[in-house]
């Protein structure tokens, strides 16, 4: 009974935290959207619209109401699962996001897999070879990924691997010839093409995905490798590591069997944050690779003063951020027994 009560209390607190976080996120985005020096009505009706058309659109968009009324109505709609309609196109936001979000998830997921699979071993190895040549090389490679504009990297990668070498496909998600041969079921083209049994289409989708995913993976790799290195250096300085070495444990066992498991808790948080960042921060990659994802959707909405689009996109990304953090928290007890008691 006590356990059930504690569980219920924990769920309630979790729900409350989620609600407060998302409401705060929406409020901040809403206020920023309203103080931006862009007239959303002009964005909706064009600069040549007559005063009559302008006034009618302003009223239709509800922009003649006080800002707190506008916000209240929006939140009320969100509570019903209605994210509103685009002020520019009139399309339902849910429909737009339903199309854009799978594209981003597909890209970001593959990117984080690449980033983690390479970044963690590199970070571990750099810590192991601290201040030696391999460490310097890994830190330099990470620094490049961290500091080089991804827009430029994307264009250079396209030039080399697509235009010159022809190893991968170019911008877009799939070749035009397959565009209508695959039934859209999940919105994830790798899944949809496999489900349809069209292996050529699957290879085309994979071939389009590999370059932007690797590029984004490289950027997250840079972050993950640096953080892993930092965590590992701290861990390798602890007494239990020295004890293990004295007892004759191999260096690989010390690194992978002892030290790495002890940094998994902060590392999982880093990976989760990195994944969250990829969900909303891939706009430049999406621009270069003509990838119709959520980052591009939010940015286009921002430039067009299409606040329902911006708010809807931000909300979805915010929910993912919160969910990823929660997932990381749920993993802590599995990764570190010391956290189970709390």
């Amino acid at each position: 009974m006590t356990n059930a009560l504690a569980l219920a209390r924990s769920a309630f607190v979790g729900f409350l935290t989620l609600a407060v976080t998302l409401t705060g996120l929406l409020l901040a985005t809403f206020v920023i959207g309203r103080v931006m020096p862009i007239d959303p009505v002009v964005a909706a009706v064009g600069d040549k619209a007559s005063a009559e058309t302008y006034a009618a659109a302003r009223e239709a968009l509800g922009l003649d109401k006080p800002i707190w009324v506008q916000f209240g109505r929006y939140v009320e709609g969100v509570g019903r699962g209605d994210l509103g309609k685009s002020t520019v196109s009139g399309r339902p936001i849910v429909e737009d996001i339903g199309r854009a979000f799978p594209a981003t998830i597909e890209l970001a997921t593959l990117a984080i897999v690449v980033g983690t699979l390479i970044g963690v071993p590199l970070g571990v190895y750099a810590a192991h070879r601290r201040n030696r040549r391999a460490d310097h090389v890994i830190r330099f490679v990470s620094l490049i990924g961290y500091s080089t504009p991804i827009f430029w990297l994307g264009l250079i990668a396209l030039l080399i691997f697509y235009a010159k070498l022809g190893w991968v496909s170019g911008p877009g998600r799939i070749a035009t010839v397959y565009r209508y041969t695959v039934e859209v079921w999940s919105g994830f083209l790798l899944i949809d093409t496999l489900r349809s049994g069209n292996l050529d289409a699957f290879r085309s989708a994979l071939s389009h995905l590999v370059l932007p995913a690797t590029l984004l993976g490289y950027v997250s790799l840079a972050y993950i490798a640096r953080m892993t290195r930092g965590f590992m250096i701290e861990e390798l300085g602890k007494e239990y590591v020295t004890t293990a070495r004295i007892k004759g444990a191999s260096e690989a066992r010390v690194l992978w069997g002892h030290a790495l498991p002890n940094v998994m808790v902060p590392l999982v948080t880093v990976i989760a944050l990195s994944f969250g960042h990829l969900l909303e921060g891939a706009v430049l990659t999406e621009t270069v690779f003509a990838w119709p994802g959520i980052g591009l959707y939010i940015t286009s909405g921002l430039f067009a003063a299409d606040m329902p689009a911006v708010l809807g996109g931000t909300l979805v990304v915010g929910i993912c951020f919160v969910a990823l953090n929660k997932l990381a928290e749920l993993l802590y007890p599995l990764l570190d027994p010391r956290t189970r008691a709390s």
């Binding site: 991968v168 290879r203 071939s207």
Partner: peptide
């Protein structure tokens, strides 16, 4: 890991020429 990633890249690349 390197081999796996190369295989992933080259496997994807096989679809590039045809389009």
């Amino acid at each position: 890991l390197t081999a796996a990633l190369l295989a992933f890249g080259l496997g994807a690349g096989a679809g590039a020429g045809a389009i």
